[in-house]
Simulated scan of single mutants.
Amino acid sequence: MSSRFKSLNRILATTLAAVFLPMALAHSEEPTEQTSDAPAKQAFGAVRLPSSGQAQSIGFYSKGCLNGAEALPIDGPNWQVMRLSRNRNWGHPATIRFIEQLSRQAAKDGWSGLLIGDISQPRGGPMLNGHASHQIGLDADIWLTPMPDHRLSAEERENMQGVSMLKKDSLYADPKKWTPERTALIRDAAENPAVERIFVHPGIKKQLCDTVTGDRSWLQKVRPYWGHFWHFHVRLKCQPGSGNCKPQPKVTAGDGCDKSLAWWFTDEPWADKKPKKPVTTPPPKPRVMMVSDLPKECRAVLNAPEKPAK
């Protein structure tokens, strides 16, 4: 066989492989080695639709995935979904029901409607940006800015900014911005038995500690954390039917208005947030989480058929 003919054969084989190998991988029922070795945030961030099958949260809030997700409609009677381009309005059905229920209760308490931030990706998993958690469909961000009196355009939903509840250059909530309706909204969320925790900025937690009267038992679920000064983060408990969901330890007893809260107003929690002097040797990059690092069930979720549309 001539060298020219061999060369033509090699070109043809390479071309056919480039065309048909990706098709074969896409239709394979078994997880591929390529998938298991892929960076998890790229793999899950690229999927646009949920997997079929029973709804299950798999793994931990910051290391897992979601099967059988349900979408929160982008417009509801008492809510609107923000940042539509992210495609993160998916969650466990219990999370979707919770948001719908909270929106109805909040309307009774005088809140004009909820602006909903990130819930989860269609199949959960690590996100390309923005969160370490929100991976198993049981986390949801809810803005502390009430819904406007009109339906926002797609452009407005992308560009509208949440309002900080803090005084300028301060760790403390601004009493001119914080209203009884905001307290009632967080209380309504915390009193739902499905809720495990609610994360807010330490200044908001202190504002609640200083102003809530009567029954304060719900404050136990409201936990101070970095950020969260323009929205609050609701985390639901592992749901029935999700045997591979890993729960968080239960919150500590008490209302949390003690020395554990006072710690947030010292220098220690913020030491790593302050600008540092330039260094000549950059620190090593953190290891990228791979699909193979997630629970083994997540490979099947990633490769499962799409959930049929209702």
Score class of each variant (00 low, 15 high):
residue 136 I to M: 12
residue 55 A to V: 00
residue 161 Q to A: 08
residue 50 P to E: 07
residue 224 P to Y: 14
residue 181 E to I: 00
residue 137 G to A: 05
residue 301 V to K: 05
residue 93 P to C: 01
residue 270 W to I: 00
residue 124 G to I: 04
residue 96 I to D: 13
residue 63 K to W: 13
residue 9 N to T: 09
residue 209 C to H: 08
residue 87 N to C: 08
residue 211 T to Q: 12
residue 229 F to V: 04
residue 207 Q to K: 11
residue 227 G to S: 15
residue 49 L to E: 15
residue 247 P to G: 03
residue 252 T to F: 04
residue 283 P to T: 06
residue 110 G to E: 04
residue 194 A to H: 06
residue 161 Q to T: 09
residue 289 M to E: 14
residue 250 K to P: 12
residue 215 D to Q: 06
residue 19 V to I: 15
residue 211 T to Y: 05
residue 92 H to K: 02
residue 11 I to H: 11
residue 264 W to V: 10
residue 286 P to Q: 03
residue 72 L to R: 04
residue 299 R to Q: 15
residue 188 D to T: 01
residue 126 P to H: 09
residue 62 S to L: 10
residue 113 G to E: 04
residue 34 Q to A: 15
residue 56 Q to C: 00
residue 295 P to M: 07
residue 7 S to P: 02
residue 237 K to P: 08
residue 89 N to C: 03
residue 289 M to N: 04
residue 99 I to V: 15
residue 103 S to Y: 09
residue 202 P to M: 07
residue 192 N to M: 00
residue 222 V to I: 09
residue 4 R to C: 11
residue 252 T to N: 12
residue 25 L to G: 06
residue 93 P to R: 03
residue 104 R to P: 01
residue 265 F to A: 08
residue 298 C to T: 12
residue 189 A to H: 07
residue 230 W to H: 07
residue 184 A to K: 15
residue 290 M to E: 10
residue 252 T to H: 09
residue 289 M to A: 08
residue 120 S to I: 04
residue 80 Q to V: 07
residue 175 P to M: 03
residue 215 D to A: 06
residue 200 V to G: 07
residue 203 G to P: 05
residue 75 D to L: 14
residue 44 F to V: 03
residue 177 K to S: 03
residue 136 I to H: 14
residue 123 R to S: 09
residue 18 A to G: 05
residue 232 F to I: 01
residue 8 L to T: 05
residue 157 R to N: 05
residue 176 K to H: 15
residue 223 R to I: 11
residue 202 P to C: 05
residue 1 M to N: 08
residue 167 K to D: 08
residue 295 P to A: 08
residue 247 P to Y: 08
residue 56 Q to T: 01
residue 230 W to S: 10
residue 10 R to M: 11
residue 291 V to H: 14
residue 179 T to F: 03
residue 56 Q to E: 13
residue 40 A to M: 10
residue 11 I to M: 15
residue 89 N to A: 13
residue 56 Q to L: 00
residue 225 Y to P: 03
residue 185 L to Y: 10
residue 13 A to W: 07
residue 144 L to C: 13
residue 42 Q to G: 05
residue 147 M to F: 06
residue 289 M to Y: 01
residue 184 A to G: 07
residue 53 G to N: 04
residue 240 P to A: 01
residue 176 K to F: 15
residue 49 L to C: 10
residue 303 N to T: 11
residue 283 P to V: 04
residue 153 S to A: 01
residue 13 A to P: 01
residue 121 Q to L: 13
residue 36 S to Q: 11
residue 238 C to N: 06
residue 183 T to I: 02
residue 51 S to C: 02
residue 128 L to P: 02
residue 255 D to W: 00
residue 84 L to M: 10
residue 208 L to I: 00
residue 139 D to Q: 10
residue 151 R to F: 07
residue 191 E to N: 15
residue 132 A to F: 12
residue 240 P to Y: 02
residue 206 K to N: 10
residue 270 W to P: 00
residue 109 D to V: 00
